[in-house]
Nucleic acid binder design. Structure first.
Length: 137
DNA sequence: GCCAACGTTGGC
DNA sequence: GCCAACGTTGGC
């Protein structure tokens, strides 16, 4: 099973918003980047990912799961981009901040550190375990 | 609020 | 198919 990281500005779509949707999940729409699309297309039902708050908070705050695989994004007029549905699984006991991630040698290769602008990123199994550990899970 | 980094667009 | 210009993102 693969792992991912999703970035969202909390004033647009926050972890609390995601939790409020419950098990029904919510489309992760609005991606307009080809590399991010590639990652979305590679996702499978049951894949888990981190929910990251950019700008405000700058921290990984929770775990989400893919509940619907890639399908067209109706908000994309060009028809080139799609989305997946995500549901909230559980929050981290404590948020893992970007600062902590930068200071952790085992996370030096995380995409978040090296290409912070990519909105949907792959996370390796090793990185997944380290972040869960830092987050108290 | 600034600015660096990056991805996309469009002219040639 | 290249590359300059532009727009956007996101950390600080």
């Amino acid at each position: 099973m693969a792992h991912w990281l999703y970035k969202s500005e909390p004033n647009v779509w926050s972890w609390d918003d995601q939790v409020a949707k419950g098990d029904a999940g919510e489309p992760w729409n609005g991606v307009r980047n080809f590399l991010a699309r590639k990652h979305l297309q590679a996702m499978r039902n049951g894949d888990t990912g981190f929910f990251y708050h950019s700008n405000e908070g700058k921290a990984i705050v929770g775990v989400v799961e893919v509940v619907r695989e890639y399908y067209p994004d109706p908000s994309d007029e060009t028809g080139r981009f799609g989305m997946v549905d995500l549901k909230a699984v559980r929050p981290l006991k404590r948020p893992v901040t970007l600062q902590e991630i930068r200071q952790e040698p085992r996370l030096a290769d995380m995409v978040l550190v090296n290409n912070s602008r990519l909105s949907v990123q792959p996370v390796t199994d090793a990185e997944w375990a380290v972040v869960l550990e830092l987050g108290g899970l």
